[in-house]
Lab assay of single mutants.
Amino acid sequence: EEKRQVKQVAKEKLLEQSPNSKVQVRRVQKQGNTIRVELELRTNGKKENYTVEVERQGNTWTVKRITRT
């Protein structure tokens, strides 16, 4: 359940930055209360990979860091 929520948060964050792209989740890793989500962003056939680190704060998820990989 929490992985599902985190995927959603990570996707939304990337789509905010580039709204007309397609996002696909590649991998989800958990480390303590930080969850790392690896995503693939496609814009006009151009692929970019991103890693989004999401942290739990109380009962909400906040995006800590977005890295292009």
Rank of each mutant, 00 (worst) to 15 (best):
E1I: 04
E1D: 07
E1W: 04
E1K: 12
E1G: 07
E1F: 04
E2P: 04
E2I: 12
E2W: 13
E2D: 12
E2L: 09
K3R: 13
K3Q: 14
K3A: 14
K3I: 15
R4Q: 11
R4F: 09
Q5A: 12
Q5N: 08
Q5L: 12
Q5Y: 09
V6D: 01
V6P: 07
V6T: 03
V6K: 02
V6R: 01
K7R: 11
K7I: 15
K7A: 15
Q8H: 09
Q8G: 05
Q8K: 14
Q8P: 02
Q8T: 07
V9K: 06
V9M: 11
V9F: 11
V9A: 06
A10P: 01
A10D: 01
A10C: 05
A10I: 14
A10Y: 01
K11E: 06
K11N: 02
K11Q: 07
E12V: 05
E12C: 07
E12M: 09
K13W: 07
K13E: 03
K13L: 07
K13D: 01
K13P: 02
K13N: 03
L14S: 02
L15A: 04
L15F: 04
E16K: 05
E16M: 06
E16Y: 02
E16N: 05
E16R: 04
E16W: 03
E16G: 05
E16Q: 10
Q17L: 15
Q17H: 12
Q17S: 08
Q17R: 12
Q17C: 09
S18A: 10
S18M: 13
S18W: 15
S18C: 11
P19N: 03
P19I: 03
N20F: 06
N20K: 08
S21N: 02
S21C: 04
S21L: 02
S21I: 02
K22Q: 13
K22T: 14
K22N: 09
K22M: 11
V23D: 00
V23E: 00
V23G: 01
V23H: 01
V23S: 02
Q24K: 15
Q24L: 15
Q24N: 11
Q24I: 14
Q24C: 10
V25H: 02
V25G: 01
V25Y: 04
V25I: 10
R26A: 04
R26D: 02
R27W: 14
R27Q: 06
R27F: 11
V28H: 02
Q29W: 15
Q29Y: 15
Q29F: 15
K30T: 14
K30W: 15
Q31A: 10
Q31G: 05
Q31K: 11
Q31E: 13
Q31R: 13
G32D: 05
G32C: 04
N33D: 12
N33A: 10
N33H: 08
T34Y: 12
T34L: 12
T34M: 11
I35R: 03
I35Q: 03
I35P: 00
I35G: 03
I35E: 01
R36G: 02
R36L: 15
R36Y: 15
R36V: 13
V37I: 07
V37W: 01
V37S: 00
V37F: 02
V37K: 00
E38L: 14
E38G: 05
E38K: 09
E38H: 14
L39F: 07
L39N: 00
E40W: 12
E40Y: 11
E40C: 07
E40H: 08
L41V: 13
L41M: 12
L41H: 02
L41P: 00
R42M: 11
R42C: 07
R42L: 13
T43F: 12
T43K: 10
T43D: 08
T43V: 09
T43L: 12
N44T: 05
N44R: 09
N44Y: 10
N44F: 10
N44D: 10
G45F: 11
G45E: 07
K46T: 11
K46L: 10
K46G: 07
K46F: 10
K46P: 03
K46C: 08
K47P: 06
E48S: 07
E48F: 07
E48W: 11
N49D: 07
N49M: 14
N49V: 13
N49R: 14
N49F: 14
N49K: 14
N49H: 13
Y50A: 04
Y50V: 08
Y50M: 03
Y50W: 14
T51C: 07
V52Y: 01
V52P: 00
V52K: 00
V52M: 05
V52T: 01
E53K: 02
E53P: 00
E53M: 08
E53A: 04
V54D: 00
V54C: 06
V54I: 12
E55Q: 09
E55W: 12
E55D: 05
E55F: 12
R56L: 11
R56C: 07
R56Y: 10
R56K: 13
R56D: 02
R56E: 03
Q57S: 12
Q57M: 12
Q57H: 11
Q57D: 13
G58E: 09
G58N: 09
G58L: 06
G58D: 10
G58I: 03
G58C: 05
N59P: 11
N59A: 09
T60H: 13
T60Y: 10
T60A: 11
W61Q: 01
W61I: 05
W61V: 04
W61A: 02
T62R: 12
T62D: 05
T62F: 14
V63I: 07
V63Q: 00
V63S: 01
V63P: 03
K64Y: 08
K64Q: 08
K64I: 15
K64G: 05
K64V: 15
R65P: 01
R65K: 13
R65L: 09
R65G: 07
R65E: 08
R65W: 09
I66F: 04
I66S: 02
T67S: 09
T67Y: 15
T67F: 14
T67K: 07
R68Y: 06
R68G: 03
R68A: 06
T69S: 10
T69D: 10
T69N: 12
T69P: 04
